[in-house]
Design a protein around this nucleic acid. Structure first.
Lengths: 349, 349
DNA sequence: GTTAGCACTCACCAATTTGGAGTGCTAATC
DNA sequence: GATTAGCACTCCAAATTGGTGAGTGCTAAC
């Protein structure tokens, strides 16, 4: 069956109405509210066709129609127009991102807050993954007899440190030597490379001469590198879902919040998503527990290299046009912020 | 009116039954289930007395009785017996806390997880406040032309660092000198002392000679100190409340989760609480939004000085005996862990 | 191809009924 | 005087009922 111009028009009207009201849309309502120039009966016929084609569903015989996942997909792919943000919205975003310009993590967190406030959905933001970040140098600093601080600096400017408990006696020269050797060995290599290729094990044997000190240091070096790969997930507006009719059911609200409370799982899902603005609707989401949700994510860049993600999650009934525009604008802004702010203060995490 | 032995017995039975079932307790049920040796009619008379005394309430004329806040308070103060944890429970706790023994924050987080799993309530854990922690030394390390890392080490072993963006040219000697001067000035002073007494402002004028460098460094020094005072709040089992009959109402569940989502507010409330095992029930909680909740907190110590908190929040109908025992056992364990582990690896945050 | 008309369906709401658990009081009993 | 049995009364909760309205699908007319 052909998707005629008229069918598309009707479908768009149904989507638009349903997104607003969250109530199944009937033929009469449709013909009254929207100036389609045809009678309810005709609309009913077209609706029956659209249902057969899989774009509409029927909660029960005598109810109006509800858009299916495919309808939203069609809308997002073809019907939707990009919404230009209002000056006011742009102002809000710019204002909020500026206020903490030199605190990296805070800025990301704020972005999530802004996003949830504007969209009235649950938003989240992921700090960049550091896989590709290369090591710049390693330093070992004496603190006291049994404590040494290891400082790792990466090309992107991220600094990480750990206090190490050193059991063997050490001299400052030994420390310096070890630090220099480590720097020499790992400089320019990416964190994930060092971690995955067992480079560390090979290293240990190389400097058997001061193996005592190295034995105390290397495991912690590895652990610290692992920590550097960790990302932070910020989430905002979790309770917004209570105001969404779809979740006016304790069981549904529970499973939604439960899903998002599994921060590690959720983070993993986010990381796995492609870069750019990605919209997945209902059953398109691989995960069963997200089959009722739409997930919109976009990626921002830091120094053109590291990639973080930001986005929203909500019911499939959602203002796709508006939300994607906002998410996109926000990530553009973030990327911009982190480009200009070269050499700004970044805090270790 | 006198609180006779028999009244206490009845009250205890009511509390015990209500805590189990969450249903108002009637006189007939009570006389059947519990071997009180008196008839329902007598129990009714006693119940009427107890209600007059404020220990029971009546949802409506023909319903059973429900314990009031005062009843729980009486129970906690006088009736409750300390529950000895089962070997199994102790094992679970010990096992979980051990597994990450050398990662401070992880251990705290795990404690919260264990607590929520055992109690089936929402649990939380607060990392220690550092107000009383004294500064040990400050170090400034050159990274590149425009970047310097500031490292602050406190007496308790906490290490914090920040990358600073330095606009003026600097020499390594200058850095060393500034670091030494700062250390000399602030060593032994507590973080909050340094922050509140405007010591920093006075300092700046002292070394006008290298004011350019200091101007870049000092504001960040202050900011970093502030960050060191920040505590982390971990929360677990948030969705447990969905399984609690009291929150079988969307509105209530919402406001509960909303309250706990205000992490800063909640953290503040926790910090303000006294040390030791503290139980506040219903209206005893200053905050209106917690008038339906019972809050149980206990404090753990690190190196006998710094104090963190851990606890649970749930409906006033709660197994006080069991939960307080668990919370207490857990904090004892934590304090112990952090006592033995002197000089262990601690990560900067 | 479009539309009016009509019978039919189903969710939703409000009113009503019914049953059960519990109370409070009174009078009898220990 | 304390305890108890008995009974009328209250109130909630759950089930039942009937009416309403929005909506559909089909058919026949335009």
């Amino acid at each position: 069956m052909e998707l005629t111009e008229r069918k598309l028009k009707i479908l768009q009207a149904i989507i638009s109405d349903y997104v607003k009201t969250a109530e199944p849309v009937g033929s009469r309502t449709l013909s009254k509210k929207y100036d389609l120039g045809i009678s309810p009966a005709t609309i009913r016929n077209e609706m029956a066709d659209l249902e057969e084609m899989g774009y509409l569903t029927h909660p029960h015989t005598s109810a109006g129609r509800v858009p299916s996942d495919s309808a939203y997909r069609l809308y997002v792919n073809a019907l939707m127009e990009k919404k230009e943000l209002s000056r006011e919205e742009k102002n809000i975003i710019a204002e909020r991102l500026k206020s903490n310009v030199n605190e990296f993590e805070k800025t990301i967190e704020h972005a999530a807050t802004v996003l949830s406030e504007i969209t009235n959905l649950t938003s989240f933001a992921l700090t960049p993954t550091q896989d590709e970040d290369a090591l710049k140098f390693i330093n070992l600093l004496p603190v006291d007899e049994h404590t040494v601080v290891m400082m790792i600096v990466s090309e992107s400017g991220k600094i990480s440190n750990t206090a190490l408990n050193i059991k063997v006696p050490y001299t400052e020269e030994n420390l310096q030597l070890l630090a220099k050797t480590m720097t020499y060995n790992y400089k320019g290599k990416s964190i994930s490379e060092v971690l995955t290729n067992n480079i560390i094990e090979n290293f240990e044997t190389d400097i058997a001469a001061m193996s005592g000190l190295a034995k105390d240091v290397m495991p912690n070096f590895m652990k610290t590198l692992e920590d550097m790969l960790n990302v932070n997930l910020y989430m905002e507006g979790l309770t917004n879902i209570f105001d969404i009719p779809e979740y006016n059911d304790l069981q549904k609200a529970k499973s939604f919040i439960e899903m998002l409370s599994q921060k590690e799982d959720f983070t993993k899902k986010l990381i796995e998503r492609e870069d750019g603005v990605i919209v997945t609707i209902g059953e398109e989401n691989a995960d069963d527990i997200m089959n009722d949700c739409a997930l919109i994510t976009a990626s921002y860049h830091v120094d053109g290299k590291l990639v973080g993600k930001i986005g929203v999650i909500g019911p499939t009934r959602m203002k796709y046009s508006e939300v994607t525009s906002i998410v996109e604008y926000l990530t553009d802004n973030l990327s911009n912020t982190f480009k200009l702010e070269s050499g700004g203060n970044e805090e270790d995490e």
